[in-house]
Each structure stands twice: as C-alpha cells, then as structure tokens.
Computed example of a mutant assay.
Amino acid sequence: MADAPPIYPDDAAVVAVGERFADLTLPKQEWTHAAHFAACLWMLAHRPDLDAERDMPDMIRRYNAATGGVNSAHAGYHETITLASIRAARAHLGESSPETPLNRVHATLMAGPCGTANWLFHYWSPEILMHPSARSTWVAPNLRPLPF
C-alpha cells in the first residue's frame, strides 16, 4: 500500500475518535469524512463485540441527534453511504498487515479513492445515491459494482 502521511499522529488518536464518537463526546466539527473512516476502523479493529453493519447505523443516528443534527429523508444518516464505507474500510483493513498501526491503515485508506467525499460517485449516479431511498435503505450501485 502506498506510503501516505497519517492524518492522525498515532493509534491512540484513531481510538480516541472512535471512542468519542461512540460516547457522543466528539465535537461535531471533528466529525469529518476522515473521522467517519477512523471510527469505522476503530470499531472493526478494537470492538469485536460490535458488528459494524448492524451497530454503526444506530450509532451514527444517535451521534447526529446528540450533536444537533437531524436524521431525515434529506439529511443526516445515509444507509447506502454507511454500508459502502464499512465495506471499503473492512476490505482495506483486511489487506493490511496485522502489524500495521491503525493510523497508518487509515492514512493509506484516505490516500486512495475513499479519501475524497465523492468516491462513491464512481459506483452510483448522484440521482440514485442522493435519493431518499438510498438514505433509508441499501441501494446497490448502478454504475459499476463495488470492488470489495
């Protein structure tokens, strides 16, 4: 995997994002695209008691509500984006050596296609991905299958 500068200085910083997300103390301005993936990698690597596909959706909904956001047909939680992102994070983590620090795993994930917020538009057209049905339920890609 490409050598990329880490966004988070060490594993403790990645873990802190995940834990602060889970306990609803992560400031809303820190809930960035990179933080979504950090929280997901934390869950996959450090929380075997949680099932990302089952538990992350409700955790995101709770986090959104706790930080003043809404979860509606047009804002907040997005099922298709969440599940696609979990698949991407899981695949990337699986391709990484178990000895690779989590902040390095995160850095290489963010240095690749998933590092931009529009990465999903390679697989879904905007009108499909941004439709309320894709926000509330999983909608399969309409342009090409996900590579993982």
Rank of each mutant, 00 (worst) to 15 (best):
A65L: 03
F148H: 12
Y63W: 13
W31V: 09
S96H: 10
W119S: 03
R144Q: 15
I86H: 11
M1S: 14
R62P: 00
N118I: 11
H36A: 09
W124E: 08
H33Q: 12
S97P: 05
T100G: 05
L129H: 01
F148A: 10
I86Y: 12
L24F: 02
A89G: 03
A84S: 15
S85L: 12
H33T: 08
P57F: 14
E19Q: 14
R47A: 07
S136M: 09
I60T: 02
W31I: 10
A107K: 06
W42M: 09
A66Q: 03
Y63F: 10
M110N: 09
Y8A: 10
K28Q: 13
W124M: 07
Y123A: 04
R47Q: 10
M43Q: 04
P27K: 13
T32H: 00
A140S: 11
I60L: 12
R62A: 15
R61F: 03
W31S: 13
A66P: 00
L26H: 04
T80K: 12
A73V: 10
L93H: 00
R54E: 09
R47F: 03
R47I: 05
P6T: 11
R144P: 00
L129R: 03
S97H: 08
A35H: 02
P141A: 15
Y8V: 01
I60P: 00
Y123H: 14
K28S: 08
R62L: 12
R47K: 12
V15G: 03
L102S: 09
A84Q: 13
A16S: 14
R90G: 00
G69W: 05
A12N: 06
N142W: 03
I60K: 08
R144V: 00
W138K: 00
P145I: 03
E19P: 01
P147V: 07
V70C: 06
D3K: 05
L109S: 01
L143I: 08
P6G: 02
S97E: 14
V17C: 11
A73F: 07
E95A: 15
F21K: 03
R87C: 02
I7R: 07
F121A: 02
D3W: 00
A2I: 01
D10K: 00
T80E: 12
F121V: 10
L83N: 08
L26Q: 06
P5A: 10
P9M: 10
M1Y: 01
A4T: 06
A73S: 12
T80Q: 12
G112Y: 01
E79N: 10
K28R: 13
A66R: 08
E19N: 12
W42F: 15
G69N: 04
L120M: 15
W138Y: 04
A107C: 11
G69R: 08
T80V: 07
R20A: 13
A107S: 05
A117T: 15
A35Q: 02
A134Q: 06
N64Y: 06
I128T: 14
L146T: 05
A52W: 02
M59V: 00
A91V: 13
A35E: 04
P126G: 11
S125H: 09
T116A: 11
V15P: 00
A2F: 00
L83D: 01
P145C: 01
S125D: 14
T67V: 12
D55Y: 07
H33G: 13
H78D: 14
A89M: 06
S136L: 13
D55W: 03
